[in-house]
């Protein structure tokens, strides 16, 4: 394979990553919603949330995975919308999507870090 990914191959891999992240996001969204419904039963407070998540490796991993999957899934989806609806093609749209992905990763990990 030459340096740089053939456009087609990039498309295939993005498709694969998007499908795989969707599979990860499915159950995580359900866990997230279920936790939210459970957590607000006695009112919602930062103390209560922190009490549950702080020092918990499991919640750290769950939300870390959530952030990773959402960042990739969202960026690939937005790239596709930009290509189809705005006719924005070529390298610049890929770079923009990558920046979006990195941005979500940074913000997301920062939030996860603050929680655990």
């Amino acid at each position: 394979m030459k340096l740089g990914v053939r456009d087609g191959r990039l498309e295939v891999w993005l498709f694969i990553v998007q499908r795989l992240t969707a599979m990860v996001l499915g159950p995580l969204v359900i866990v997230h919603l279920a936790t939210m419904i459970y957590a607000i039963q006695g009112g919602l407070s930062a103390v209560e949330i922190m009490g549950r998540t702080q020092g918990s490796l499991v919640w750290g991993l769950v939300y870390g995975l959530f952030v990773t999957a959402a960042a990739f899934h969202g960026a690939i989806g937005l790239r596709q919308i930009a290509r189809e609806a705005l006719q924005w093609r070529g390298m610049t749209v890929n770079v923009a999507a990558l920046i979006f992905c990195l941005g979500i990763l940074c913000l997301g990990y920062q939030a996860v870090w603050a929680l655990v």
């Binding site: 456009d7 295939v12 498709f15």
Partner: peptide, 11 residues
């Protein structure tokens, strides 16, 4: 498969 696995192909 290679011919349709492009930017404007099946995906």
């Amino acid at each position: 498969l290679r011919a349709v696995a492009t930017d404007a192909g099946c995906h």
